[in-house]
Design a protein around this nucleic acid. Structure first.
Lengths: 257, 257
DNA sequence: AATTTAATTCCGCTATGCGAAACTAATTGT
DNA sequence: ACAATTAGTTTCGCATAGCGGAATTAAATT
């Protein structure tokens, strides 16, 4: 209905979708939001937003602050994420590998999967040295610019990838030509070496390598490993960490998930 | 409508509530669930569940496994929790204190708030020694049996507490007399010492002490600190850690959140 | 072949949710 | 003091989105 697409999908519950899109607004735009702002972000009509925030507040998904007269996410939002990770077998399988490498090389290691056109971390281990608070479970990285996103793309067939590309192009707008070039290089290097890399590209100071894990039923997770120059050299990443990740990837693939 | 309660709340969006209750089903009962099971758990009629799971799957909140013909939570469920914690000022304030104590005493420290009749952890630091995987961000503890839950109860006025008690009684069923007795003791000791305790009660091997933090607008968070006997003695908990927590609590209360 | 179990689809009905417009209330400007 | 602006809520008639009993399909089990 929104545009002109679905003539009628009797099975799709619009109001549920709308309610969830209101919660998502708090991911895109942090900080307390008023109904007006929510309406602006979600493009939903004011009374609808009003009813939805009312409902979500009653259920605990939003907290209302009398002071600011705005809404914030409620703590209950943590439960679903926790339920997700708690039942994710791949985490248990990958964890020992991740801890071992994090300790041995003092690097940060993340386990992520794709959500839409981004990668989301489902687990993360830090080396002792730096606590880059930037990344944590639930945080996202762009698919095209991060090593881990690129390893996801690398795991896809050309056809699957070609479906995504236009969307990625849209996301990156005028930067796309440059992003695409860089991405294409990274994918070529993947074909050659078996892991992807992103050196100072998504974050100027961070160098990362990553590999995909292909599980059953087309589920794909990726492991990335990296850190700032002064902790881990690009040379070590390429010569030691990358190959090690490939090994880990094989190991996990054999565990039959 | 459900029972006979609300005559009519024109503002409450039932289908949103139902959709969310379906997601919550995956917290109560982990593992892949089929529509039937979801219907049983949520008491919703089958076709409704069918439509909801269809919608949630389209939006990525559920993944459908062809193999098992069941649904699981999707990774996207991590984002809201992450958005919640990322914007939670108290976490940044409390973190240094928590890290310091975790390191100094090798204990586990958690920061939690109440959700319904449970406490939910919004942050957690582990001492080096044990990684009790049981507790993590997003996991919950019972309010009446855990030190941290008791410290929440202790922070309330008698009137507020009296509202909760019948609900807690309901939750604990036939165990309530015993739970209540233990809780009452703990609350008395709180009045005397300024922190609550739970020694081997919720978990036989773990001893914990906790304090509440009262923030502005009646927001309450609690910090707990504990570990197994062989890492931290109850004596140290009572003589050193407890008082230290009180100090931390004062510190944070002065930070004007 | 018959039975059981689970998911989906059908389809008529109406309660539900919609949203334009009206209304409140608070803030700002002149 | 009085518009004007901005944000949130409420109203209310209407359309239909969503409901759910019942039928249907599809697999698994006996």
């Amino acid at each position: 209905m929104t545009e002109s697409e679905q003539v009628k999908d009797r099975k799709f519950v619009e109001s549920l979708s709308r309610g969830l899109s209101i919660l998502s607004a708090f991911d895109q735009t942090p900080g307390p939001l008023g109904n007006q702002e929510i309406a602006a972000i979600t493009k939903l009509p004011k009374p609808t937003v009003s009813r939805m925030t009312y409902t979500l507040t009653k259920l605990g998904y939003l907290n209302y602050s009398e002071r600011s007269e705005k809404y914030e996410l409620g703590a209950i939002n943590l439960t679903l994420g926790h339920a997700y990770t708690a039942n994710l077998r791949i985490r248990q399988i990958a964890k020992p590998h991740m801890l071992e490498m994090a300790k041995e090389f003092n690097v940060n290691i993340g386990l992520a999967t794709n959500v839409g056109y981004e990668m989301i971390f489902v687990d993360y281990c830090r080396g002792d040295l730096l606590k880059s608070v930037l990344v944590d479970i639930g945080s996202k990285l762009p698919m095209a610019k991060s090593a881990i996103g690129r390893s996801y793309l690398a795991s896809l067939s050309k056809e699957q990838r070609d479906v995504l590309m236009p969307e990625l192009a849209k996301i990156h707008g005028k930067d796309w030509p440059e992003v695409e070039k860089n991405l294409a290089e990274a994918l070529d290097l993947y074909d050659e070496f078996g892991f992807t890399r992103s050196f100072g590209y998504w974050d100027r100071n961070i160098n990362t390598v990553a590999v995909p894990l292909k599980l059953s039923e087309n589920r794909i997770f990726c492991i990335s490993c990296g850190g700032p120059d002064y902790v881990i050299s690009t040379d070590t990443l390429l010569k030691v960490i990358g190959p090690r990740l490939i090994h880990v990837s094989r190991d996990i693939s054999n565990s039959g998930l």
